[in-house]
């Protein structure tokens, strides 16, 4: 589903440039539960941004769901993000003026899904993440863990192919982390949604089927764990 080939990302301004990702190659298959691990500054978020089509690589080719997306314009990328990718961010990033239910159905509304359908699907998703009774609460009225659950609900309600989660547990306590990981893992297993995390949280890494280690913009280790009955590949 994801095929990165010789990806480079260079950030530069008038005075200096920074080579963030260097000749990176990566392939992710449908249904994987993969973590990109590495220390701060290793390029995890940048790689995730490129995979999630939030940023463009400086060079290299990127094939997403069979389509070469490296040369698409911003509007075309937005279309793919909206229809095929769900996002979960470290800081939850919910719309503060929308309720949990409205946040959950927001992307479906962008996609012009029928009101009845999207309302039902959003409600089911909120129930699935255990927040059905909090549907009318605004983000400020929810705990950090609950907000992140709403973010997950928002990410999966539109039934994307891929969920990109950038350090989703960084601001959560261990109970909320476990509960969130349980949730995402069950969604992965039941719905076959591909999950791609960036994290250096051992609790997340322990749950992953595959861990891609990144250091100084390069993949230094790519390990398939025995979770989910898979074999160590590398």
């Amino acid at each position: 589903m994801i095929k990165l080939n010789q990806i480079n990302k260079i950030f530069s301004d008038k005075h200096q440039s920074f080579h963030c990702l260097k000749d990176l190659n990566l392939e992710v298959k449908q249904g994987e539960f993969t973590v990109i691990a590495g220390p701060s500054g290793s390029g995890k978020s940048t790689l995730l941004n490129i995979i999630g089509l939030l940023d463009k690589p400086s060079s290299g080719s990127y094939e997403f769901d069979g389509q070469n997306v490296a040369k698409l314009n911003n509007n075309q990328l937005a279309d793919i993000r909206r229809e095929k990718i769900g996002f979960v961010f470290q800081a939850y990033n919910l719309m503060p003026v929308l309720t949990a239910l409205e946040n959950t159905e927001m992307i479906m509304e962008f996609c012009n899904v029928d009101k009845k359908v999207r309302r039902q699907r959003a409600m089911e998703t909120l129930e699935a993440v255990g927040l059905g009774e909090f549907k009318n609460r605004f983000p400020a009225q929810l705990s950090g863990g609950q907000q992140q659950r709403v973010a997950v609900a928002r990410a999966i309600a539109a039934q994307p192919l891929l969920v990109v989660a950038d350090e989703p547990t960084a601001n959560l306590d261990s109970h909320s982390t476990e509960s969130l990981l349980d949730l995402m893992q069950s969604l992965n297993q039941e719905l076959g949604v591909t999950f791609l995390f960036s994290s250096h949280d051992p609790r997340v890494i322990d749950r992953a089927h595959r861990v891609v280690h990144l250091q100084d913009g390069q993949i230094v280790k790519d390990v398939c764990t025995n979770n989910n009955d898979q074999q160590v590949a590398v």
Partner: peptide
């Protein structure tokens, strides 16, 4: 932050 979030979630520039 919110506006860039909306763009991240798939809202186009004209939207």
């Amino acid at each position: 932050k919110e506006l860039s979030l909306l763009k991240a979630l798939g809202l186009k520039g004209p939207n």
